[in-house]
Structures are given as structure tokens and as C-alpha cells.
């Protein structure tokens, strides 16, 4: 099941690549780099989330930072 999800996210990444890559012009090096790095970041994150779904995320981080202030309006 987990590997199925990994394959699914690979398929998503692949179809994004197939859709976007031909549209990029030759001289758009920076754009290509940004596209690839963001896609790989997404893939990496998706694999992480598939295997560690309970991993604390940005929400937990923000909650931790703002907790002292947030407590003021807690009820």
C-alpha cells in the first residue's frame, strides 16, 4: 500500500514533468532548475509523509512558537 502511494506520487511528478518540461524554452535555465528542485522537494516530502505520517509539520512548529501568545485567547 505504501509503495503504491509512492508510485502514485511518482506518477504525479512524472505527469507534471511531461506537461511542463516541453513548454520551457532552452534559455530558461533558472526556471528549469526551480521546477526540478521544487518537484524533487515535493517528491521527497511525499515519501517522508507516506512513511512517517505523524511527523510534526509547520503547524506544530508555529503552534510551538506562538503558544505563549496564543494562550491569552485560549478558551
Amino acid at each position: 500500500m505504501k509503495w503504491g502511494l509512492v508510485i502514485a506520487s511518482l506518477i504525479i511528478a512524472m505527469s507534471m514533468f511531461l506537461y511542463q518540461w516541453p513548454k520551457l524554452k532552452k534559455q530558461q535555465k533558472k526556471e528549469k532548475a526551480a521546477f526540478l528542485s521544487l518537484t524533487f522537494l515535493g517528491l521527497f516530502l511525499s515519501v517522508l509523509l507516506i512513511f512517517f505520517p505523524e511527523m510534526p509539520g509547520p503547524t506544530q512548529m508555529i503552534d510551538w512558537i506562538y503558544k505563549p501568545l496564543g494562550r491569552l485567547i485560549e478558551k
Partner: peptide
Amino acid sequence: RPIVLPIGFL
């Protein structure tokens, strides 16, 4: 536009 789809994935 090139980064719209990867951002969507994220």
C-alpha cells in the same frame, strides 16, 4: 508558470 504545478503538489 513553470513552478505552478510543483507548488500545487507541495
